[in-house]
Design a protein around this nucleic acid. Sequence first.
RNA 1: GGGCAAGUGGUGGAAUGGCAUACACGACAGACUUAAAAUCUGUUGGCCGCAAGGUCGUGAGGGUUCAACUCCCUCCUUGCCCACCA
Length: 799
Amino acid sequence: MSYPFKTIEKKWQQYWQEHKVFEAAAAGKKKFYCLEMFPYPSGKIHMGHVRNYTIADVCSRYKWMQGFEVLHPMGFDAFGQPAENAAIKNKTKPDTWTHKCIEWMRAELKKMGFSYDWSREISTCDSSYYRWNQWIFLKMLERGLAYKKASLVNWCPACATTLANEEVIDGGCWRCKAKVAQKELEQWYLKITAYKERLLDDLAQLTLWPERVIAMQRNWIGKSEGVEIYFPLKERPGRICVFTTRPDTIFGATYIVLAPEHPLVKDLLKGKPQEKAALRFIDKVAKESNAARSAADVQKEGVFTGSFAINPVNNEEIPIWIADYVLMEYGTGAIMAVPTHDQRDFLFAKAHNLPMRIVIQEPGSKMRNPLELAGAYEGDGIQVNSGHFDGLANQEAKKKIAAWMEEKGIGKIQTHWRLRDWLISRQRYWGTPIPVVYCPQCGTVPVPYADLPVLLPQDVSFSGEGGSPLGKSNTFVNATCPQCKSKARRETDTMATFFDSSWYFLRFCSPQFRTGPFDTQEAAHWMPVDQYIGGIEHAILHLLYSRFFTKFFKDIGLTEFHEPFQRLLTQGMVLKDREVMSKSKGNIVDPDSIITRYGADALRLFILFAAPPEAELEWDDRGLEGSFKFLNRVWRIQDNLKEKADIELYRLVHKTVKKATADIETFKLNTAIASLMELVNAIYQLGADREVFGILVRMLAPFVPHFSEELWQQLGNKETILKGPWPAFDPELVIEEQVTIVIQVNGKVRSRIQVQADIEEEALQELVLADARLQAWIQGKAVKKCIVVPQKLVNIVVA
RNA sequence: GGGCAAGUGGUGGAAUGGCAUACACGACAGACUUAAAAUCUGUUGGCCGCAAGGUCGUGAGGGUUCAACUCCCUCCUUGCCCACCA
């Protein structure tokens, strides 16, 4: 007979709700804000959600039991394209579809028994939320952090609409399969680059973030120190400006490559015999999408311009080429090519028979002839063929050459950044309308704060054709200019959903606040988020944008902190048959069906036990059954309680408390559970009393909350187990009196003995050398060394 | 191509310089049962051995160390993220 999980889970979910157990309130205790990345309401939760939210729930409940005032909110990242696509497909409205999905999803989350403060629930698609997106946008606009710029978008000519990258499938439109083109549109950007230094420098404060997330953010921001070098043109005045991080290779720069879009290209070509062929090439490249141009393993194509530049360090004439692998968007749109020390340049030079010169000698190599090179040497070495810098280590030469070029006025030491401004415009309906109007007299005019929110219109039909649906709503498009009151046109672009999720953690602090995006006092109390938990796929964009918004709020005086998330955990993926669970692969396990068969607690326990939170998790039906069996095994203990348990068991219980507490603190939840299982095994051997059992049940409470509440109540407790409190261990009972010492001979285990834990080193050595089993191994041999590791091991080294 | 992880029994995993394989799954055996399920109790890395015990063993190869799954070097494989970023 298995335990009645169905009634128990229902009972306690009701109890928590009725007693408002999880409603956060500032109560003068130490606060703890636990947050997981809120879901997109697709309708059903999947195992990835279950894993993410179960890990966070353990953290929250553990903190509740420790007496913290916990803020653990949940909401929905509800804007986005799937709702619009569903509307096109099912002839419904994005609004209706989304709210239905939210309802289903909320019900499923409740069935998992997560400890959310549902009174704080938010949905980003509600105007009470997105009006503050508009408010924030206007604040940014005021400070010059929002601006418009022309930019290329994926365009489906058949549907006359823009497409997201993921809607482009094999170069065609996802709906009609027409070939996707590039089209230039005026788009809104946020100037995140204005924060690049702070976003980079403050990474140092994030000591509780995973190393690899820090590394990914650092690479994305991409600060590189280098030199801007000026190459004079040979035949006429003017110069080409390039940026390099390798000024140590400048003496090996044997040609220059311009991006086909480079402004100098057409002038350089004029009247040259190469002009025609080159223009044809430029035309061809222009037709290629960025995706095709950046595809790997494509032959590097290029043409000679017929013109030459002068290498300013040695006055050599070097040819100027055009190639598709140089992009106008990066650096200066021109590079100096050093084929001997850059692999891409090497391949290009080989293909077009361009000159090469070795200027950095690989340590241990005497090679001087570039023709012997099988590939570029990109490592460190000694300068050769580099004028008076010969013989220097290249890292040292890098600095000296840079300084020397700056002094001579042929270059300038510069810092380049990889980070680009953030494009937030979407030609979509289901998003936050960008609050500006276009007036023929006054130009681009922000909507006054008093007129917010700019609401999404309801009179919109969804066909998927003819551009943004907002553009087809006359009531929406026709507006009055806030300044001159003449007829004006409303902006029909909406904001990317990353905007919504860049500050929702602040809204949770005061979700009903009506006079600003959030109550600054509430935010000062709850922020920063103490523990943030989510998937590694958000390691760059979402986290970077959230950090950017947080810094912006500080600048406009709404907050006092620099970083939003103190500690970050990125949980691993859930796999089935070694592949990520996904609809297209058809290897989905539906959490709901598991809950029906085994209950939410068994599901929670399995998903926590099967792997450490940060690692990938292989789904296993049989493992799940094991977790269910374990719960039944614990359930049966209550019928066999003794008056008084053995001292041996007390010792183990306290050791387990120590171990489980330490493990939960460091998110080793799988081994925390393993130690509880060991305790249960010992209880089956030794027999527990009420005290021991009570401690076990409290330790189980964060993992399997319904189950533990029920047992706790049956032990005679009147209050929720969350007021448990979390058990403490008696340090006296944790200390070992006897320890086992491992005895090794030459590093191999040969024996072991029991000794008092506080034995003196000399006495221990004597005991060890007298050990009977050891004699065969050391007899007649000289003991060269004897290494003693207190309380653990003795290693005897014999000749 | 770059960055970051990871590679341990039949399986998920544990051990981050000191007893390799905790805990769990699976398998096998026993108890209970008319029987099965459930439950309880054992056994369970390979090889040699009746046993005591020995010996090999953490992707491959080398190194450091009294001692290496753990640290260093080279290579292989897998996964994730990013990518003609100068």
